[in-house]
Design a protein around this nucleic acid. Structure first.
Lengths: 253, 253
DNA sequence: GAGTGGTCTAGACCACTTG
DNA sequence: AAGTGGTCTAGACCACTCT
């Protein structure tokens, strides 16, 4: 008698809300459109703001919504496909790659990285910081670890750090005939530094792509890249412009 | 002057808590060990339970903790590497694959799937449901869509559905000389059905792997698999037993 | 300064597992 | 029955972005 009708199955309110909102997004909203604010929405659905927020968080995780403090909640565009497994787009130093070298310095890497690179734990390696932009939005932040032995011809003349140095390291690495790469993808949360670079809050979900580049049977470099999980769909192979997944309801029968 | 000291940088409490707990997990806890319950932990740190829970949720997202209703919170083992991009483990119908065919029926797929398969939207396709188990734990649930044209020699004699039928479809698909596959990975949340199969609650974070199998230049089958994001690290290539990422703090310098 | 989302609280009740 | 994590509430205040 109050709003609509009681559920015999005690489905959580926030989950039901998520479904209702998801359908509303499909039928009644355009990409980029601004939703009513959280207090209004909560009142409209007769729930506490915390409950409404739980539903919005789900939808944001699924890439359906975008929320910005001080601004509002907008309908997100479909996720952009980001090529991760191809030589053209992802190999360090490729000509037309979408990466922008930001900085480089020589330092001892984390122990786990040194183990993979098979260097001594306190041996300094070139550490290149890059960021990747797609459609005008920052989508990834990367740290690339390059042992000096992988770039033997690197001249020590230039500035020891800075973007120019980063490009030089990448160029030399590219000359070393990279054979293949092995990648792993897992879920993580953005640290304070990554969050700032990705224009997100700390703790934002990211897809962590760890890639090992192999040359002549050994590990020539190691990359740890964090991609914005809300806006990115990582593609391996040429799975470029296909869009399939759109929430759990995809699998009707 | 109450507990410890005020932060000049207004770092959120839950984020600080996450860091403190993360370090405690590294130094003071063993894998599988049970943490104190949420009410005790919240009291110990002098925060509301909701705030404590926010920190625990982060850690669970990062694969550090495992929480089960009615039981408690335990320290999670390192994520298991799950091969996704190799012929041996991931191709449908491979001999030693880790998949277990659960069911199969003939039905019209979602419109987006039909578009990729280049079939008519109301043309029924074989829909195989499989689940993947690793180390005794369910890690993935998959729906595999196979157009009848990809399995021309499939006999219509056997039962039209059920595990046996599923295996028959996979076997015939395998005979069709799959050439290569293209995959995409994105973050999603488990629907009610997937959640149950993965032993999680609805809305649990999952890595959605969409794979297109190609044979003779056309799409022979399409797979949509949801992997538990908390326990899985997806590997492409032979990136098997390497473990690197361990929270945002990995990138010390 | 007004309006937005982000954080935090203190409490309640529910669903589930286990002894 | 007791103990756990999961859901929900009603309110407060903060950080941020706009105008």
């Amino acid at each position: 008698m109050g709003t609509t009708q009681l559920e015999s199955v005690p489905e959580p309110k926030y989950w039901h809300l998520r479904t209702v909102l998801s359908e509303a997004l499909d039928s009644e909203f355009e990409v980029g459109e601004i939703l009513p604010n959280e207090r209004d929405l909560a009142a409209r659905f007769g729930v506490a703001r915390a409950t409404l927020r739980q539903a919005l968080e789900q939808l944001e995780l699924e890439g359906r919504l975008q929320r910005r403090r001080g601004v509002g909640t907008t309908v997100a565009p479909p996720r952009v496909g980001v090529a991760v497994g191809t030589r053209e787009h992802a190999w360090p130093g490729a000509a037309d790659d979408a990466w922008q070298a930001a900085d480089c310095h020589l330092a001892a890497p984390p122990a786990a990285v040194a183990d993979v690179l098979e260097t001594d734990r306190d041996e300094p390696v070139h550490t290149v910081r890059r960021s990747r932009v797609s459609h005008g939005q920052p989508v990834a932040a990367e740290l690339l670890y390059v042992p000096p032995s992988s770039v033997p011809d690197l001249t020590a003349i230039d500035a020891p750090s800075g973007p120019a140095r980063a490009r030089a390291v990448l160029r030399e690495l590219q000359r070393g005939d990279l054979e293949r790469q092995e990648s792993a993808v897992e879920l993580g949360s953005a640290g304070a530094d990554d969050a700032k670079e990705l224009d997100r809050l700390p703790g934002a979900p990211v897809l962590v792509v760890t890639t090992r580049y192999l040359a002549e049977g050994r590990t020539a470099a190691l990359s740890v890249a964090t991609y914005r999980a809300d806006t990115c769909r990582l593609t391996f192979g040429d799975f470029g412009d296909v869009e399939i997944h759109h929430g759990p309801e995809t699998r009707a029968s």
